[in-house]
Amino acid sequence: MICFPNAKINIGLNITEKRSDGFHNLESVFYPVKWRDALEAIPAERLIFNTTGLDIPGKPENNLILKAFDLIKPFAKKESNVHIHLHKVIPMGAGLGGGSADGAFALKLFNELLECDLSILQLQQMAATLGSDCPFFIENKPVFCFDRGIKFKTIELDLTGYTIVCINPGIHISTAEAYGSIIPTKPKESVITLIEEPIEKWKGLIKNDFEEPLAKKYPLIDELVNSLYRKGAIYAAMTGSGSTVYGIFKEEPHLKNQFSEYAVWKGEL
């Protein structure tokens, strides 16, 4: 059985306050993007996990896919060992949620393969224990995200027909580094309100709180955003805590080899 965990972008990201538990409350719009990994699992006599594609740092046992398997195994109604293969394509630590997607899609895959019969709500609750972005990928549709990133409200946002270009310049930005430059502030207008404006008005209106301070430290981020605007993007921004930037276009842009030194993905939304 195979599935294709996809990336997501943040459209706007406001860090609104520091919580007493050490996390931050935030608000953002999450939108799925078709930049995908490939994840396969088949029944096996023992648990096997291997990967191809991009090199994944860290110990394999810390991978969210294996953590997802440990979470769902007690609910299995049939043989519960599997051979798992992940082909990694989505850049890691890039603000695209690729690792979170792998964990969430793994839950859905194991739920079906092992006949666990868990509901969407149960899978979302399980995913929340894996990481803040993970529950989003269970239903994998546009949402307004709030609280510490695990509460969602469905929104009527449809960007079908637009083209997106994502550029990952390979700058690794840790979560601690990203939050270290942020002073939490509640915005005058919530992104859930601003997103209702026509996309042509988003520039200068919908912002990512991480983008400006990180662009001062890594000017390439700002350079890439401006390059996308020069190419005709209606809206361009950094996603998540970076360093990936994206541009949304009415028509497919001709990039030639302009960004050939970076990881680039282009496709329809």
Rank of each mutant, 00 (worst) to 15 (best):
G240F: 09
E212H: 14
L205S: 15
S243D: 02
Y218H: 13
Y218C: 05
R230M: 13
T239A: 13
G204T: 14
Y229G: 01
A236C: 09
Y229N: 02
I248D: 04
A237V: 05
K216W: 07
K231G: 11
E212R: 14
I206F: 09
K231H: 12
N226A: 10
Y235W: 08
R230W: 07
A233V: 07
P219N: 12
D222P: 00
E223Y: 08
N226F: 06
T239R: 12
V225P: 07
M238C: 02
Y229E: 02
L220E: 12
K201Y: 12
G204I: 15
I221D: 08
A215C: 13
V245L: 03
K201N: 15
K217P: 00
F210E: 02
L228C: 08
Y229F: 12
N226Q: 15
P219C: 08
K231V: 07
Y235N: 03
F249N: 02
I248Y: 01
I234E: 07
M238T: 10
D209W: 02
I221H: 01
I234S: 04
L214D: 06
G232P: 10
G247A: 09
A237M: 12
K217G: 11
Y218D: 05
W202F: 01
L205C: 15
A236S: 13
Y235E: 07
A233G: 02
F249A: 08
V225W: 08
L228H: 00
F210N: 09
F249W: 00
I206P: 09
S227R: 10
G204F: 14
T244H: 06
P213I: 13
Y246R: 00
K201I: 04
E212W: 09
G242W: 01
G232M: 12
N226C: 11
K216C: 06
F249Q: 06
V245A: 00
Y246T: 08
L214P: 08
Y218I: 09
F210L: 10
F210S: 10
P219F: 01
A237R: 03
K207Q: 14
R230C: 11
A233Q: 06
A236N: 02
S227N: 15
K217D: 08
V225T: 14
K231P: 06
P213F: 10
A236V: 07
T244F: 03
L220K: 13
W202S: 04
L220N: 00
Y229A: 00
E212V: 10
G204V: 15
W202N: 06
F210D: 06
N208Y: 05
L205R: 15
D209T: 02
L224G: 06
T239D: 13
L205F: 11
P213W: 05
A215P: 04
S241H: 09
P213C: 09
T244V: 13
A237H: 05
L228D: 03
L214C: 01
Y235C: 04
V225R: 13
